[in-house]
């Protein structure tokens, strides 16, 4: 009887020590779930989800504070991926957060720009070049199309231009064949 108790106690101590060691040794810094959600989000940093950026939104989803259908730039595909990752039910994009639009970049009408720097301060990814009382311009390659520069512009010289299809970014279409009658 005593031997059995001792053996069990010894087992418990050894396993407990192993678990304790593992929890210290293999400790994971940060929340891996947040990273995974953040990797799915489009990094537009537009704030349409009512959070100040993609990372805060990812944190809110991980905590269960936010729904997965609040990201218009990610679109339906993004929601599906999030639903897959989190094992939640797919929901259509919530209309109060916006609608899915074709990807576009901001364009500054340089004739009208007065050089106020307000858009530079609004840009979440530093994609606008300019200085006070100097013309501003968008670095199109780095613009995420978040539209955050539109409201602060006092002269409304910024417009969103949809990204045009070129030979380089053209995609083969999904094969579709017309149904023909067989006789």
């Amino acid at each position: 009887m005593l031997a059995a108790v001792l053996v069990m106690a010894l087992g418990a101590i050894v396993l407990g020590a192993a678990l304790g060691f593992a929890s210290v040794k293999f400790r994971v810094e940060g929340d891996p779930l947040v990273e995974k959600i953040d990797a799915i989000l489009p990094q537009t940093q537009c704030g349409q989800c009512n959070y100040p950026g993609c990372k805060p939104y990812a944190e809110a989803i991980a905590k269960g504070e936010a729904e997965i259908n609040q990201c218009p730039p990610g679109g339906e595909e993004g929601i599906r991926k999030l639903a897959d990752l989190l094992g939640r039910e797919f929901k259509p994009l919530s209309s109060e957060h916006g609608v899915e639009k074709p990807k576009s970049v901001a364009f500054i009408d340089e004739q009208t720009c007065i050089g106020c720097t307000l858009c530079i301060q609004a840009c979440p990814v530093d994609a606008i070049v300019g200085a006070a009382k100097q013309m501003h311009t968008i670095i199109a390659d780095q613009c995420t199309g978040c539209e955050l520069c539109l409201p602060p512009c006092p002269v409304d010289c910024i417009t969103m231009e949809p990204i045009a299809e070129t030979v380089e970014n053209w995609k083969w279409k999904y094969p579709v064949f017309p149904i023909r009658s067989t006789h």
Binding site: Q43, Q45, V125, D126, T144
Partner: peptide, 9 residues
């Protein structure tokens, strides 16, 4: 592009 935007953000 998204990774680049995240880095810049």
């Amino acid at each position: 592009a998204a990774d680049h935007a995240r880095e810049r953000y």
